[in-house]
């Protein structure tokens, strides 16, 4: 049973989220403040998914997200944002969130997002048992450790970033469209903003590129998507 952390200061919103998660077979832990959420996360490292509200008294959801991401690169994080402004979505994703849901949202949509993200998180776990490694000089994608090695240097990756990297590496040298990435990583039933792909690519570039403003390994294919610079593996 997957464990989900729900952080929202409004007990009424938390209430129905909990009811829906539980009826879909999730184990739920609740937090009413950012501080509480961090405390819970540290005592229960088996949390797989965190739903974080952004507008909170005390430390806000973005900060919680950043700290969780640092300590738990494998955790799936979905932001619950009350603002539709581009800035809020992006700042959440930049802080390391895998996805976001805009309030007011339908519980079913939220469950669908949680399930999609969970697939990604568990996919990584399944693969980890087979300890598969994708090698593409100078990178070694070590799925079991949620890590990418660039030469000797290890780079921590989130499940989403790992999934994106996996798709790109497996089709090294070929262009992958944004929609293909969206389908492969976020699932075919994802109905959020496709910009999420770009934000993740940007995040990955910042981690792996020598000069993120002039990316070398992940090329942009204008109007289409992205391509891993390198020899085809097949």
């Amino acid at each position: 049973m997957a464990k989900v952390l729900v952080l929202d200061d409004e007990i009424r919103i938390r209430g129905f989220i909990v009811v829906n998660l539980e009826s879909n077979g999730f184990e739920v832990v609740e937090a009413a403040s950012g501080e509480e959420a961090l405390r819970i996360a540290h005592t229960q490292p088996d949390i797989q998914i965190a739903l974080l509200d952004i507008m909170l008294p005390g430390i806000d959801g973005i900060e919680v997200c950043r700290e969780l991401r640092q300590s738990y690169p494998a955790m799936g994080i979905i932001m619950l944002t009350a603002k539709e402004q581009e800035q809020d979505k992006v700042s959440g994703l930049e802080a390391g969130a895998d996805d976001y849901v805009v309030k007011p949202f339908s519980p079913n949509e939220l469950i669908a997002r949680v399930n999609a993200l969970l697939r990604r998180v568990t996919l990584v776990e399944q693969v980890s048992s087979s300890s598969e490694e994708l090698i593409c000089d100078p990178f070694v994608l070590c799925v079991s450790e949620y890590k990418l090695y660039k030469g000797e240097k290890s780079i921590a990756m989130t499940p989403t970033e790992l999934a994106v990297m996996e798709v790109l590496l497996k089709r090294s040298g070929k262009a992958v469209s944004r929609d293909e990435l969206l389908d492969a990583v976020w699932g075919p039933d994802y109905f959020g903003d496709p910009k999420i792909v770009d934000v993740n690519i940007r995040r990955i570039r910042r981690k792996i590129e020598d000069d993120p403003s002039r990316p070398f390994y992940i090329e942009t294919v204008w109007g289409h998507g992205y391509r891993w610079h390198g020899e085809s593996l097949a």
């Binding site: 009424r12 009350a82 309030k103 007011p104 339908s106 519980p107």
Partner: peptide, 10 residues
Amino acid sequence: RTPLTSIKGW
């Protein structure tokens, strides 16, 4: 949005 989220959710 906050009450709407509750109302819609519940």
